[in-house]
Nucleic acid binder design. Structure first.
Length: 438
RNA sequence: GUGGGCGUAGCUCAGGUGGUCAGAGCGCCAGGUUGUGGCCCUGGAGGUCGCGGGUUCGAAUCCCGUCGCUCACCCCA
């Protein structure tokens, strides 16, 4: 790069045609799944009042935000997540919306931090949320939608796994192990280190939080238990039994829906966001080489906290950055599709007016049509047709023009046949759609 | 914010210990082939070797700084 060149900002992407094609491939898969699950698409502003993010997420998040003062002196921020905007939008109409509400969005989100693998300063994220339902069926529904958003792109149970837990369950577990409610959040933070630091490391962190060694060891053993054994291991603890039972129901629903191979209980799963109140889940690649592809959970208190009605809600976010890496890894990126249908080849300049008329007529039928923008040799034109990925060439020359015909050459087989020019310029035959005209 | 690695053509990369080291492949443009593409052959365009400074007779090469990319940490979507 020369010094005079203006580069794109760190952590922001340019989407060249190939990359935009992949992005659109992902978005369209997400939209198909959203539609199948009966979700309506919405969107909100990319710039919001800073307070929308600080009020519930705390001041510490400000360091990670793209935030600044606008010309009117307002503290604003580029949205780092969609949930607050979603909550605000729901709040303004909550009374009039039929519950449960099912909405999804594909916002571009921003975060001011150093880029690294799978994390940039900007990304797109599928957000799907259900508002107004507490039944475990809704938890299973949102997890199913998350799985299908990935299945639609060709990923299967061999590629991805959904780790599911429930803050109510883990909270009850902490209570049972003598950890007071106000310590739950920091303890969640410590437990989150389990995979990175191992049990000894986490025991040390728990010790700093005032959890005794013995208790820490028992706790670490407990969260590794299968869900079915967890309640049994804590005998008469009703809170644990109830939470475990509820989560078991979610798993049962997911099993009934055919997703048993995708899901797994993970008592060590902790989501960073403070507002989760129940089910939490993350989707990871099976090889565990990438960071989480998707994360979400139940946030029953957030809507009320943001000034709206007291409505239960749950949802997830699925980013495009890690997902793109996974699709590339698994060779699930569709290769370049045909760019044009027809390439019109003019043998001499005399056919140019005819070519323009044919091009216009074919384009009116919805066909993708290309022709040289300056006179070139026939060989060059065919080469260009080949490069453009044309399905067929429409050859016009003096010999054909004289007889009112054109030669259609199938670019794959090389077969040629003559057709009357009227069949190209006239109205589409029958009721067939343009794309189907051959 | 901290630390490691890396910056040579549009892309992927060669260029022991400083002395035709400005290169290859792919891609692009053109010609071979003014009525037929893919393959092949030939030619061409394209780089202040990220930028700045220093050492030296001489720096893509060594030193310092800086910017950028990247990986990890922190944190988390």
């Amino acid at each position: 790069m020369s010094s005079g060149e203006i580069r794109g900002l760190t952590g922001f992407r340019d989407f060249f045609p190939e990359e935009l094609a992949l992005r659109r491939h992902i978005f369209s898969a997400w939209r198909r799944v959203g539609a199948r699950y009966g979700f309506m698409e919405y969107d909100g502003p990319p710039l919001e009042a800073l307070e929308l993010y600080t009020r519930k997420s705390g001041e510490e998040i400000v360091g990670q935000l793209y935030e600044f003062e606008d010309k009117g002196g307002r503290a604003v921020a580029l949205r780092p997540e969609m949930t607050p905007t979603f909550a605000r939008m729901i709040a303004t109409r909550a009374a009039g919306l039929a519950k449960p509400v099912r909405w999804f969005s594909i916002p571009q989100l921003f975060r001011y931090e150093r880029p690294q693998r799978g994390r940039l300063r900007e990304h797109f994220q599928l957000n799907m949320d259900i508002v107004g339902e507490t039944d475990p069926l809704s938890d299973a529904e949102i997890v199913s939608a998350g799985i299908d958003a990935l299945r639609e792109l060709g990923l299967g149970a061999a590629d991805i796994v959904v780790r599911i837990s429930d803050r109510r369950l883990i909270g009850a577990l902490l209570d049972a192990h003598g950890i007071s409610a106000e310590d739950h959040v920091p303890v969640f933070g410590a437990l989150d280190r389990l995979e990175k630091e191992g049990e000894d490391g986490v025991r040390g962190r728990l010790g700093e939080k005032g959890v005794e060694r013995e208790a820490a060891t028992r706790l670490l053993a407990a969260i590794r238990l299968p869900l079915e054994e967890l309640a049994a291991a804590h005998g008469g603890d009703e809170a644990i039994a109830e939470a475990a039972d509820r989560l078991s129901t979610v798993f049962a629903h997911l099993g009934a829906a055919g997703f048993a191979d995708f899901v797994r209980f993970d008592g060590g799963l902790v989501r960073g966001l403070a507002y989760y109140t129940g089910t939490v889940f993350e989707i990871w690649d099976r090889r565990d080489e990438l960071r989480a592809i998707c994360g979400g959970g139940r946030y029953d208190d957030l809507l009320k906290a943001l000034g709206g009605m007291d409505l239960p809600a749950l949802g997830f976010g699925m980013g495009d950055v890690v997902l793109t890496e996974l699709l590339r890894d698994r060779d699930l990126v569709p290769v370049g599709t045909r760019r044009v249908d027809d390439y019109i080849v003019c043998v001499s300049d005399a056919e140019r007016p005819l070519a323009l008329g044919i091009a216009r007529a074919l384009r009116d039928r919805g066909r993708r049509v290309l022709y040289d923008l300056r006179p070139r040799g026939v060989g060059r034109q065919f080469k260009a047709a080949h490069q453009a990925g044309a399905g067929r060439a429409v050859v016009l020359g003096p010999r054909e023009a004289e007889r009112g015909v054109a030669v259609l050459r199938d670019m794959a087989s090389g077969e040629e046949r003559e057709v009357a020019i009227e069949t190209l310029t006239g109205p589409p035959p029958g009721e067939a759609k343009g794309e189907e005209v051959r």
